[in-house]
């Protein structure tokens, strides 16, 4: 029994039991190089062997904005105040796209990567995190388009200006990333065994967009929507983010402090829930996927 003392200092244990909150942040930190290499891989390989390359990320929001302007503003008579409707829609879509890309990109983490996950171990959460980071590139390209049109309208003499809260811009990006990543991780964990949710994601995201005040301002929704729909829009964290995003860039609408705090809380909560569920799934998913 003299050996007992020497055998007690195990580095770690592999077992089936895992407590709910046992994230190994040190481990994730140790794999930070991998995170950056995945991001690099996504960026390098994004435009390989396409003719238009990054242009695709320009075309999509531009056309959507044009369509939205035609339908909602020309046909549907939605008022956007002093802001040109096209610019209003472009801002909303740019923000929405980043959230959407993060959500759909991470929602199939387990099924898409089952090959590599079945062979080697690394903290699985690296994968969705890298997607969220590399999506920033697409977001950046779309932001450049927005800035281009913003300057164009400015030169034309339209009355638009940035709001002083523009300093909150990085925070809004973080909120979108947390929400997209959080929901994405929850969905990806739930779809490992039962694939039903993957079918919902496609049109669910589409529907959510219309409830998130992307093609209309929240003030219009308050006026025109039926009673029971208004809270769905108002307490939807994405509505608050889109509204806030437009508010700081175009000075349209207002940021309500209590709603802003509410949104931050929801985003952090969703992210933590996602992390917990994801963490629980990563141990067993390879047997059920």
């Amino acid at each position: 029994m003299g050996l007992k003392t020497a055998e007690d200092n195990w580095l770690y244990t592999i077992s089936s039991k895992k407590s709910l909150f046992s994230f190994n942040f040190i481990e994730i930190w140790r794999y930070r190089d991998l995170l950056m290499l995945f991001v690099k891989r996504d960026i390098i390989t994004l435009y390989k062997q396409t003719i238009l390359g990054p242009l695709w990320y320009v075309i999509q929001p531009l056309f959507t904005s044009v369509i939205f302007t035609l339908i909602f503003n020309n046909l549907g008579q939605i008022q956007t105040g002093t802001v040109p409707p096209f610019l209003f829609n472009l801002a909303g879509i740019t923000a929405w796209n980043y959230f959407k890309e993060c959500l759909t990109g991470t929602s199939n983490t387990f099924t898409k990567n089952q090959n590599i996950f079945g062979k080697v171990y690394f903290p699985r959460v690296i994968m969705p995190m890298s997607i969220t980071i590399s999506n920033l590139l697409k977001f950046g390209i779309q932001m450049l388009i927005f800035i281009g049109f913003f300057l164009f309208y400015k030169v034309q003499g339209t009355d638009i200006r940035l709001h002083s809260t523009i300093l909150l811009f990085p925070l809004y990006i973080l909120l979108m990333a947390l929400l997209g990543l959080g929901f994405g991780m929850i969905i990806s964990s739930m779809t490992t065994k039962y694939r039903d949710l993957t079918i919902v994601v496609g049109f669910g995201v589409q529907l959510l967009m219309y409830l998130s005040a992307v093609p209309y301002p929240l003030s219009e929704a308050r006026l025109k929507f039926p009673e029971w729909v208004i809270p769905l829009v108002e307490y939807n964290p994405m509505t608050q983010i889109i509204e806030g995003f437009r508010s700081i860039l175009l000075n349209s609408g207002t940021i309500e402090v209590d709603k802003f705090i509410y949104t931050c809380a929801i985003a952090v909560l969703v992210f933590l829930c996602g992390l917990i569920i994801f963490n629980r799934t990563e141990k067993q998913f390879i047997d059920t996927v």
Partner: peptide, 16 residues
């Protein structure tokens, strides 16, 4: 199991 790709149903592996 050793490479942590999947976890054991019961039992544990300790390593240094």
């Amino acid at each position: 199991i050793l490479s942590q790709v999947t976890s054991p149903t019961t039992g544990e592996i300790k390593t240094k």
